[in-house]
């Protein structure tokens, strides 16, 4: 295999992750009034990933090219829409699709154009999911499921290889290929999606360090596999997700353990460094503060920060007493 292309594959992966993270930091995609990514949506994605190659193998080539073209064009459109405005995103996406088709005489041109469209689409799709509330836990679940699937489809059966052979050289083929030929240097669309998706979800859920670690782990997996191909240890297709999946799950477990829970989108936007800590319990302080000896009996005591700040015959009057002294109590307790 082409060693330069294998090295470049890591570079392209890094570029894809950087594009998506940059997009996440700057661009807000529109979202529906109601709706947040749920575990059910992860299941829908899984089913899609499993069914897509099987359906494509069963359908004639023109249909497959059309379906991929429409899906890719739509994804490019909604990725560009927040950047260019809705009016220019459709013409831009159509131009990209048209250019790819127009290059049909040049296999390298088709390959390059498809790669550019895929990079844009992956940026948009991963952002769409994370920006609609997909959690790191969802990505980890997806990664776990696809790790098993990839092993079955790539190593135990020939689904992936037959699918790759079928779509090779086609415009809009769902693989980011850097070379042509019988065994091209390429990443499957599913691999690329997860390589980009987890750093994004980790950035939202756990912050910059988790995102950088996730990106680094992904790159390390791609580079290691490339190195094994360069050294001719590997020669046929390799189930990348079977290697990447468990590492994503492990990162999720690590961060979850460390941080307690994921940040919500709102917490991330407000700049919270970690998920909000459990709020202090005013009742605990009220119990401590009102237990001191020498306090008046048969009345209500208003408490703020371990101190009694007001007294009254009723809870409301105790608070009012504190207010008159310029204090805002957090609890009242009867003595």
């Amino acid at each position: 295999m082409n060693t330069t292309a294998l090295a470049a594959l890591s570079g392209v992966t890094a570029l894809a992750v950087a594009l998506a993270l940059g997009y996440l930091a700057r661009i807000r995609m529109p979202r529906p009034p109601v709706g947040v990514h749920t575990a059910g949506d992860v299941a829908v994605v899984c089913v899609g990933v499993v069914l897509a190659p099987l359906l494509d193998l069963a359908l004639p080539t023109p249909v497959v090219v059309t379906v991929f073209g429409v899906v890719l064009g739509t994804a490019v459109q909604f990725t560009l829409a927040p950047l260019l405005g809705g009016r220019w995103a459709w013409p831009a996406a159509a131009a990209g699709i048209g250019a790819t088709l127009a290059l049909h005489a040049s296999p390298t041109g088709v390959l390059a154009a498809t790669d550019v469209l895929l990079l844009i689409a992956v940026t948009g799709v991963t952002n769409l999911w994370v920006q609609s509330g997909m959690r790191a836990a969802h990505v980890a679940a997806l990664a776990g499921a696809l790790a098993v699937y990839d092993l079955v489809a790539t190593t135990l059966t020939s689904v992936t290889l037959r699918f790759a052979a079928e779509v090779r050289g086609q415009p809009f083929a769902p693989q980011l290929a850097l070379t042509r030929g019988a065994l091209p240097v390429s990443l499957g669309l599913g691999d690329l999606l997860l390589l980009v998706l987890f750093p994004l979800a980790a950035a939202k859920a756990y912050g910059r360090r988790a995102a950088l670690l996730a990106a680094a782990v992904g790159l390390a997996v791609v580079s290691s596999v490339s190195a094994l191909f360069a050294a001719h240890v590997l020669t046929a297709g390799f189930p990348l997700l079977t290697a990447l999946g468990p590492l994503i799950v492990a990162q999720q477990l690590y961060w979850r353990q460390r941080r307690g829970r994921e940040r919500t989108w709102a917490e991330w936007r407000s700049g919270a460094r970690e998920a909000a800590p459990p709020p202090v319990n005013p009742a605990e302080r009220a119990l401590r503060a009102t237990a001191a000896p020498g306090l008046p009996e048969d009345c209500w005591l208003a408490v703020r920060d371990d101190r009694v700040v007001g007294v009254g015959a009723t809870p409301g009057l105790a608070r009012r007493d504190a207010r008159r002294l310029g204090r805002t109590p957090t609890a009242v307790r009867q003595r």
Partner: peptide
Amino acid sequence: RIARELLATLAEFGEPGDDTALL
């Protein structure tokens, strides 16, 4: 389900998405 999803949306995002007039 729409009502519950609205609450889940508020929990995640703090506010509903665009076009609440469609609810």
